[in-house]
Amino acid sequence: MENKISEFNQRLLKDIMNIMIPKNDEIPAAGDMGLYKQIEKYFLSSKNHKKSILNILESINLHPNVRISGSFFSIDLIEKIEIIKWHEKNMIDDFNKFKESIFAVYYNDDRVVRKINWGQEKVKKIEPKWDPSILAKVKKIEPFWKKF
């Protein structure tokens, strides 16, 4: 099976990602960053993640309110959030995988890494040392393990 998301589901995924991780100052919302390609690269090659991602997208498409409205894109934000939350509550394992994929690619993106200063800091040269004086108080506790 090809590790690609259909064009329709790409749009849906992008919309959901934008809701889950909105714009942050100069960094666009997650969907607008084009991260679905990274999801395809890292997570659609994993059978379990792929199944979960596609299950969530399919289930959202089949949600009664989406079907009544014609599509996810034509309903308002509050209702979209409710639909996503319904899946979070009722499809726990699939939603966790879905969410993992989105957050992992977002926080692995160079723009975000720079923004949160992750990986930029230098390794601390003066490393902490083991200092036994920290044990001064706890050492005064009488041994309390039960003897046999």
């Binding site: 909105p22 942050n24 957050f103 926080y107 975000v112 890494v113 949160i116």
Partner: peptide, 24 residues
């Protein structure tokens, strides 16, 4: 944790970035 695993323990949606900034 690292950033993604930290973020996974927080809310998604409009409060996410504020929570992340406070937590990470």
């Amino acid at each position: 944790h690292g950033p993604a695993l930290t973020a996974l323990e927080l809310d998604w949606g409009e409060n996410h970035h504020e929570q992340f900034s406070e937590s990470f």
